[in-house]
Amino acid sequence: MNSCPIAISKDFIAKNLIKLSLQNTHKINLIWLELAGCSGNIISLLNADNPDINYFLTNMISLKYNNSLMAAEGEKAYRQFLETLDTEFILVIEGAVSTKAQGLYDVVAKYNGQYVTGMEAAKLAGERAKHILAVGTCAAYGGISAAAPNPSESVSVSAFLKRDIINVPGCPVHPDWIIGTIAHLLVFGVPELDQKNRPVIFYSINIHDACPRRSFFDQRVFAEKLGEPFCMFKLGCRGPVTNTDCPIRRWNDTDNWPIGDNTPCIGCAREGFPDLMEPFIRY
């Protein structure tokens, strides 16, 4: 078979490169555990393209447990979770760990007649996982689940597990950030992390510095209301205090993103979201 990668369309080059580097590696197991959150990160993962979800599941990892996608249900589903604990696996957690009432604010399963709380599941898997990824702002920092007055006493995964964790924040996380981080783990090992344990490749850029509307800020041309094509700093833009590559990467395979849609950044990938990022919009 002639498989010159350049001859194949540009879209697939990235896919093929990943394939080339992955072909000799054994597919590692992965548990995607949803805790107290909105399940928005798994939906965001389904929005991935090149590689898409089918490629991710077929060629990159072996997903063992995820309650949104798995065919099995009830005890049979949870048994797959337990069986995976004895293998080498990556643990992805989305959602915060809610600790109120011994964790009963978030019950993920019932096994042998006993409730399994999110806390217990996170502890069980968290102690044995080879790598842990806290995906989304709730898992990374507590996020909206821990918004004041924090009725469910939710905490971030790192505050709960107290071990090395890779934080991949964002509300939701961008599919490229999560798949990129996992690809890095698989092929090149643990990616370079910043002080907050975020992969430098995705979180080293300050939104304000890379913003296409930066020149409007420098020239002091400010939008007075939403829908204007100028700098939204005076409306409460959190770009200056938030680090992600949104201005360059954009969202959902479009060239659009919140600021491109004439609305301010609300700092959804930043520690302290939402309490410290409010008011989101102030005229």
């Binding site: 700093f233 833009c237 205090v241 409010e278 008011p279």
Partner: peptide
């Protein structure tokens, strides 16, 4: 007014 961490006249709450 133009301090970058003070978007919209608000600063971390």
């Amino acid at each position: 007014s133009l301090e970058e961490t003070w978007g919209g006249g608000s600063h971390f709450g």
